Every structure is written in C-alpha cells, then in structure tokens.
Simulated scan of single mutants.
Amino acid sequence: MEFETFDVDTGVLRKQGGKFVDLGGDFSTASKRLKGNLEDLGEPWADADFGEIFGQVYTPIRDGILTSMNSLAERLQKVGYNLQDMARNYDASEASNNGLLNGVSGEL
C-alpha cells in the first residue's frame, strides 16, 4: 500500500502572506491618496451649466469606488494574514504529530 503525501513550504506561505499584507497596505495608501487628491480638486464643474447633474452622477460613483478600494485593501491584507496563520498552524500541527510519532516509536 502506497500513501500519497504532499509537502507544504510554510516559509513560502509566510513570505507570500507578507506580500499580500504589503500589497493591501500599498493599495490602502493609494486609495487615501486618491481620495485626498479628489478632495483637493473640489468641484470644478460646479459653475458649469451641467454642474448639478454631473455632481449627482459623479459623487455616488466616486464614493462607491473609494469604498470598494478600501474594502479590497482590507481583504488583500486579510488573505496575507490568513496565509501566515496557515503556516503557523501547519508548523504547530507538524511539530505535534512528530512529537506523537516519536513517542510511539520510542515505545516500540
């Protein structure tokens, strides 16, 4: 009887998890910068003939995009933290299993 096995490189999980955390942080920073830049612009269309209508369309779309960007940043970071947690859990499980197997083999 042959057993199939798989290996988990927890170092890679940790490293990639860190990259997701960093990516989420970078995305959050970019989102805040975009929001600040848009606020600095104000409403240059306000005095135009179409200003009121444009503002009614633009503002909810802008706000929705900014909300989505913030949500994506948080989710990217969460993926990263989850990958890092997975690596820690796998290492802890592996250490526990090795300890149990060593104890059993010492009894034989």
Rank of each mutant, 00 (worst) to 15 (best):
M1A: 09
M1H: 06
E2S: 05
E2H: 06
E2A: 09
F3S: 06
T5Q: 09
D7I: 00
D7P: 00
V8W: 04
D9Q: 06
D9K: 02
D9M: 02
T10Y: 04
G11M: 00
G11Q: 03
L13F: 11
L13H: 08
L13D: 01
L13E: 04
R14T: 11
R14P: 04
K15Y: 07
G17L: 00
F20A: 04
V21S: 05
D22Y: 03
D22F: 00
G25M: 05
D26C: 03
F27N: 01
F27T: 05
S28A: 14
T29R: 13
T29Q: 11
T29D: 09
A30I: 01
A30V: 01
A30F: 06
A30H: 02
S31V: 07
S31E: 07
K32A: 12
L34F: 06
L34G: 04
K35G: 09
K35I: 00
G36H: 01
N37M: 08
L38T: 11
L38I: 09
D40M: 07
G42P: 05
E43C: 03
W45P: 08
A48L: 14
D49V: 02
D49E: 14
E52L: 07
I53P: 02
F54M: 06
G55I: 01
G55K: 08
V57R: 13
P60A: 08
G64P: 05
G64D: 11
I65Y: 13
I65T: 11
T67L: 09
M69F: 11
M69I: 06
N70V: 06
N70T: 13
S71G: 13
S71N: 12
L72C: 08
A73H: 05
R75C: 05
R75I: 03
R75T: 07
L76G: 05
L76Y: 09
L76F: 12
K78H: 12
K78Y: 07
V79R: 03
V79S: 11
G80M: 01
G80A: 10
Y81K: 14
Y81C: 04
L83P: 05
L83H: 06
L83R: 07
Q84S: 11
D85P: 05
M86C: 15
R88K: 15
N89P: 09
N89D: 15
Y90P: 07
D91S: 08
A92E: 10
S93R: 10
A95Q: 13
A95W: 01
S96R: 15
S96N: 15
N98I: 10
N98E: 15
G99I: 10
G99T: 13
G99Q: 11
G99A: 15
G99H: 02
G99S: 15
L100E: 11
L101V: 12
G103A: 10
S105N: 12
S105F: 08
E107I: 06
E107G: 06
E107D: 14
L108T: 03
L108P: 01
